[in-house]
Structures are given as structure tokens and as C-alpha cells.
Amino acid sequence: MIGLGEECALFFGYLTKKEPAEYILEAYRRAHRDAGLLPAEASGPDAALLNFASHGGWRLAAADAYARIFFPASLLRKKLILALALAENTPQGSDRFNLETDKGFFRSIVELSFLSFRFLTFLTIGVLFLYPRLNFRTRL
């Protein structure tokens, strides 16, 4: 398991390709510790999913896709949504939500198709790697 600061940097970087400012790291910690929005410690399948995602890269993308379909209220997904909300409302991330120039209809359709393909690929990987682990832990 990794600390909250490291976790924030990982999730924020995954969503925005940027490093979070100290202000964002502090807000992420505050949401867990002071505001009690999310528990600082995870257990059971939540911990297993977070542990898998904490390696970053393809494992985080696979855990993200898996959680959307099979574990939508998981702690991983909540933490990612918190990172998304922080990105949306801070100077470091808010520009990631706007298109500054027209992309055009056909280019958008191509990109949408790619996004769907990417999702299905990572979902398949997620099922292969995570379903046995989480199912086994849940049964235990």
C-alpha cells in the first residue's frame, strides 16, 4: 500500500498527465483525514483492488475499467472520482475538460471508437487479472 500523497500523485497523474501541486495533495489528504469523505485505510476486496491499481500503468487502467463495471462503488473508484473533482476545480487540471479548438465530427467519431476499444481491452485485462483475486478474497 502507498501513502495518501503518493496515491493522489498517481491518480491525478493518470487522469491529467500532470503532477499535482502541493495544494491538491493537501486537499486529497484533507478529504480522507479531516472531512472523512473516504476512509484512509482499505480492507477486503477494496484493499486488493487498490493494491493492484497502486502499481500504476496498465494495472491502474485495468483496475479502473474493471471497477466501473464490476465494482462501481469501490474505494478505488471513489478515490479516482475525488482526484477527478480536484483536477476539475484547480488550475492544474481544469484545462483538461475543455476542447480549445474544433476537432470535427469524423475525428471525434474515430477518437470515440478508440476510447471504446481501449476500454474493452483494459476491461478484458482487468477481468483476467482481478476477477479471480477479488472473487477468491470475497469468498474468504
Binding site: 487522469l15 487502467a61 475499467a65 466501473r68 479516482l80 472520482i81 477527478l84 476510447l115 471504446s116 483494459f122
Partner: peptide, 10 residues
């Protein structure tokens, strides 16, 4: 209905 990173780009 997709992963959060994909949904953000979508």
C-alpha cells in the same frame, strides 16, 4: 459507461 480516464476524454 467506461473507465474514468476514458470517460473524461469522452
Amino acid at each position: 459507461p467506461m473507465d474514468l480516464l476514458g470517460a473524461m476524454k469522452l
